[in-house]
Write a protein that binds this DNA or RNA. Structure first.
Lengths: 330, 330
DNA sequence: CGCCTGCATGTAATCGTTTACATCAAACCC
DNA sequence: GGGTTTGATGTAAACGATTACATGCAGGCG
């Protein structure tokens, strides 16, 4: 089934069929109707590969993430896809599995599929691999980390804002011994969260080195860190975690030890994953809006594709404290 | 950058380049080396659209699901993608958003992209839309619901087994007033879960009509249903929910009412989503293995693609009780 | 009436591969 | 040594769309 059969049935040339389908050029209404009828009757759908081959535009966007089972990402994927479909584009997703080798594979596939652009949000982005994209002039937008360049935009996430809001909130509730559980420190974003925490507390003169523990952005890391905090002679009265999974791990340990949140300890997470309001108590956390991120990424990609770079001036996403029930005054 | 430039640089014809890349036909080692060197130097990657166009094989598989933010699906997507990548295939994902119109769009895109096959796991599968796929001889496999056919396999999920295991477990713990919160009853799979529950209890002579409440596979549904159970003069001592979200909703209400699980009420979910072991207490639930589902779907798809139908005899996935801490004896 | 203009449509080249078939040289056989 | 086989490579026709250019026809004008 191809455009030629449609042409034959409508008694026109393939060019006319193509023109009616794309609506660009003028076709006499009567002819167009005949063509549409033929398309309908034959149930014809054009072959996108042939289209791409000749036009050079695949109308596919790539989205590279670390791991779809990380609860941060499904929202991002969904928002990204929704917006892309609205713009008549499709999305192919690459899971790197936190593995640079798979990242290379993802990028290769994106190139082979001639994607119109790529959005990347992975922890472990290797500049060499990414250079591959820019070398081929494939518009690329980083969410969170990366350097802007000729075919390349970067969206900055303002991690600091949320952390500061959280600290203000806790301090207003009279907390002074505030602890932080970090993420993996090779992640730029995790570093930022931590360093804003440190500098804000130092500025207030209530920073205590002992109240920082390393986590890994997973449940266990949060649990281990929390156990250490609870062994301290002077325990923290509030804990901020570098992400929600970490907070959930900490929450489990607090319960395990027969204490409760927020009565004994206040707890704040980061990300606002779907389950943050399903914990007991519902977790106060810092929202990083995946929808906003996706929307901005798509807009940036569009701008790069259209070669319109001036609209790429301020690409910053805020983060905000979302109050639930895991904090209280002391 | 195309195969011709590679050919020129390696001083061979395009056919030889193609042959070296595909490794199928014989090429003299010295020539092949020259070609590979040229490919390397030019950083050449073949255009997959051109390949697909001539070969008719896109090496893309479609995966259609209802909603990636439904926590059941990310695991499925990941497993499916992992296996697909291993087989040298790519995956494009279609989110129907529980919306038949978007389902139609997904299918259209799959056809246009000339996918080698499609796997479908959606609640709301419209036979007419799916006929579209089989009419075009696109291998299709349904996970859970659908009818096998010439280009079409169906994987049956044995919901009954898990429900029966759960009931045996509860009965062994001396529970007799066992309640069930259903899913949306237009879903075949939700119906099955419910009817197995009913028939098993009837067979034991301990069925009570009052202990069935409707849910919607979401948190709120579980919460509402649980409130109703707690108003009953003779409350249930155990509750099975049609999925984990429902169970989590019920759990919230139980806590809210100052009761606790499993001391006052035993609770069992269904699916074993990632957060089932993060609830407090960790939720006993019935596992429907997404990895198994994905593996079987891919195997079935492969068989259909290769036209090898005899390997499609018994496509059944079991479900199993996973014991955690939300049940106890009375 | 002859020519020009402009619209609707057709013709055919093109995109970048794969692959059937053609070619050609070397090797082999009797 | 001529003919045949074999193996390596080249030539060119596909695949199914888009689109620059060509064509043809109708109407307008002097």
């Amino acid at each position: 089934m191809n455009i030629r059969e449609v042409a034959k049935r409508a008694r026109v040339s393939t060019a006319t069929v193509s023109r009616t389908m794309n609506g660009s050029d003028k076709v006499k209404p009567a002819t167009a109707a005949r063509v549409r009828k033929a398309i309908e009757e034959l149930n014809f759908l054009p072959n996108s590969h042939a289209r791409t081959l000749v036009s050079g535009k695949s109308h596919i966007l790539g989205l590279i993430i670390s791991d779809i089972t990380n609860p941060f990402f499904p929202d991002l994927v969904k928002s990204f896809e929704d917006e892309a479909v609205q713009r008549g584009k499709e999305v192919i997703i690459g899971n790197t599995d936190y593995n640079p080798k798979r990242m290379a594979g993802c990028i290769r596939r994106m190139v082979e599929r001639k994607v119109d652009g790529v959005a990347i949000m992975t922890s472990e982005s290797d500049p060499a691999l990414v250079a591959e994209l820019t070398r081929r002039n494939i518009p690329t937008v980083f969410m969170d980390t990366g350097k802007p360049g000729p075919h390349c935009a970067n969206i900055r996430v303002d991690y600091g804002q949320g952390i500061q809001e959280a600290l203000q909130h806790l301090i207003a509730l009279n907390h002074r011994r505030i602890a932080f559980i970090t993420g993996p420190m090779n992640l730029a974003s995790a570093q930022t969260r931590c360093s804003v925490f440190v500098s804000t507390l130092k500025a207030r003169g209530i920073f205590d080195e002992a109240l920082i523990e390393k986590g890994n952005h997973r449940i266990e890391g949060g649990a281990i860190a929390m156990r250490n905090f609870l062994k301290l002679p002077r325990r923290p009265t509030a804990v901020i975690a570098s992400n929600d999974l970490t907070a959930i791990g900490a929450l489990g340990v607090i319960h395990e030890m027969g204490m409760s949140v927020p009565e004994d300890i206040s707890l704040i997470g980061f990300d606002d994953i779907a389950f943050a309001h399903l914990t007991n108590p519902p977790l106060t956390t810092i929202l990083l809006s995946r929808r906003q991120l996706a929307t901005m990424a798509l807009a940036a990609l569009d701008a790069l594709i259209q070669g319109n770079r001036q609209s790429l001036t301020d690409l910053t996403i805020p983060t905000h404290l979302v109050m639930r029930s895991s904090t209280r005054a002391i």
